[in-house]
């Protein structure tokens, strides 16, 4: 249980003179639900970009299951079992929901340059997509263009596409942003369910979600990890209170 599936060692990231990530060490244990919180501009999204291959770290190491992934291309990182969702919805707007999820599912089945098989005859792909659509509660929208979904439906689709490759580690970047109370509750349930046999790293601003969902929480402030611990420990950590949570937790 305690061996880390994702480990960051002394990771730095600068954009020119801007030093965004200033030496982050983080261990995400296999199977845990780990949340990263921190004030706006702390570098949470940059951290995700580094882990998922969007950016290469300026220095330091990022290890997935003991293998260095820092500096790899996004596709390579994905193929090693780490998938992510995006804070700003990142889907295929001009094709149907079904088609969106099918593109996401196909990769896992080794389908990429395949031009000799009809995609509609790939029954296992179709079944998986249909299962996923049901789980996302998008059944009635399967043949709607993704661009015509409501905002929260697009967020669900975003999560669904992240899940589709059946990754070992999932990075969710503010999955609940812009959702209503009811949608948030459903999505928390969904995330709980999908995280059952996987590792989850999540950035979220909704503190009630973070504290109920996460096994452990890390606090990132100005590019530095100031604390990591269970929700209870974080709640009681004086440094965290001062730096970030303040009245929110006290209240």
């Amino acid at each position: 249980m305690s061996d880390p599936i994702l480990r960051l060692e002394g990771v730095h990231k600068s954009f020119g003179p801007a030093h965004i990530i200033r030496g982050v060490d983080l261990e995400v244990r296999r199977g845990e639900r780990h949340a990263v919180i921190g004030p706006n501009g702390a570098g949470k999204s940059t951290l995700f970009h580094l882990c998922s291959g969007e950016f290469a770290p300026s220095s330091g190491r990022i290890l997935l299951d003991g293998q260095e992934i820092g500096g790899m291309k996004p596709a390579e990182v994905n193929c090693r079992g780490l998938a992510r969702s995006f804070q700003i919805t990142n889907i295929f707007p001009g094709i149907s929901v079904f088609e969106n999820l099918r593109l996401a599912v196909m990769r896992k089945h080794g389908l990429q340059f395949t031009f000799w098989r009809r995609v509609s005859r790939l029954d296992n792909v179709t079944q998986e997509v249909e299962g996923l659509i049901e789980r996302l509660r998008l059944g009635h929208r399967a043949h709607t263009l993704a661009s015509q979904l409501s905002y929260s439906e697009q967020r669900s689709l975003e999560i669904g596409m992240t899940l589709a490759s059946d990754p070992k580690v999932i990075l969710l970047d503010e999955p609940m942003a812009g959702m209503s109370q009811e949608e948030t509750e459903y999505t928390v349930g969904l995330i709980r369910e999908i995280a059952e046999d996987r590792t989850l790293l999540i950035v979220e601003h909704d503190m009630s979600v973070v504290f109920s969902l996460a096994d452990r929480i890390s606090v990132l402030v100005y590019g530095e990890m100031i604390a990591t611990g269970t929700p209870k420990e974080i709640r009681e950590n004086p440094q965290v209170k001062e730096a970030y949570l303040g009245e929110e937790v006290a209240a």
Partner: peptide, 8 residues
């Protein structure tokens, strides 16, 4: 997005 889904 295609890149992040693991495609070349």
């Amino acid at each position: 997005r295609l890149r992040f889904l693991g495609y070349n």
